[in-house]
């Protein structure tokens, strides 16, 4: 996840202290994995150095956690560019599963079993996400749905490959 850009977006909504920024990030985007403080302050100092944020006021008492940060015009431009630019779609070409299937065919092992085992594992995870979806809040549901659609895509590939194993076996042994 692009931590720098996400920080900028959060700061565009309002200036925040480092601690406040970390908490907002962890709550909304952390997925149960909190950012380390080291990571937070390293990111902030990088953004400061590039002029994308500025210190907006220091409360008496000193120490890094007392600083409030605000986004600069350059920062807003950066967020705008990042948000409007499409992400490169991930291409999981030649994944491990494909290699396993081909190697099974090459070595005379039952390739269909590999696909079946994987299908069961995928479905197990999909059940877990579906359960989580029914108890989670709305943002959590959207995150689970994202994962579910990706797992479903894998399963479609598994199904299609299972249906064409004979053909693949011929190609592999040719």
């Amino acid at each position: 996840m692009a931590i720098g850009e996400t920080f900028l977006g959060l700061l565009e909504s309002r200036p925040r202290h480092g601690y406040d920024l970390k908490r907002a990030y962890d709550e909304r985007f952390g997925q149960g994995r909190a950012l380390a403080y080291g990571q937070v302050y390293a990111t902030l100092s990088r953004l400061l150095k590039s002029g994308l944020i500025e210190v907006h006021g220091i409360e008496p008492g000193g120490g890094p956690e007392r600083k409030r940060y605000a986004i600069t015009d350059a920062g807003v431009t950066d967020v705008q560019r990042w948000l409007t630019q499409p992400e490169k779609p991930d291409l999981y070409l030649q994944n491990t599963l494909y290699s396993k299937v081909v190697l099974a065919l090459l070595t005379g092992r039952p390739a269909a079993d590999i696909l079946d085992t994987q299908r069961a594992e995928h479905l197990r995870l999909m059940r877990e996400l579906t359960r989580r979806k029914s108890t989670g809040d709305f943002p959590d549901q959207l995150i689970c749905d994202y994962a579910l659609f990706h797992l479903e895509a894998d399963l479609r590939w598994l199904e299609l490959t299972a249906a064409r194993l004979d053909q693949l076996a011929k190609e592999v042994s040719a």
């Binding site: 479905l123 999909m126 059940r127 579906t130 479903e152 479609r156």
Partner: peptide, 16 residues
């Protein structure tokens, strides 16, 4: 035949 629908089940049985 939809995995997201099957994910509401407790277990699956595959027919081939």
């Amino acid at each position: 035949h939809e995995a997201r629908v099957a994910a509401y089940s407790d277990r699956e049985v595959v027919v081939r």
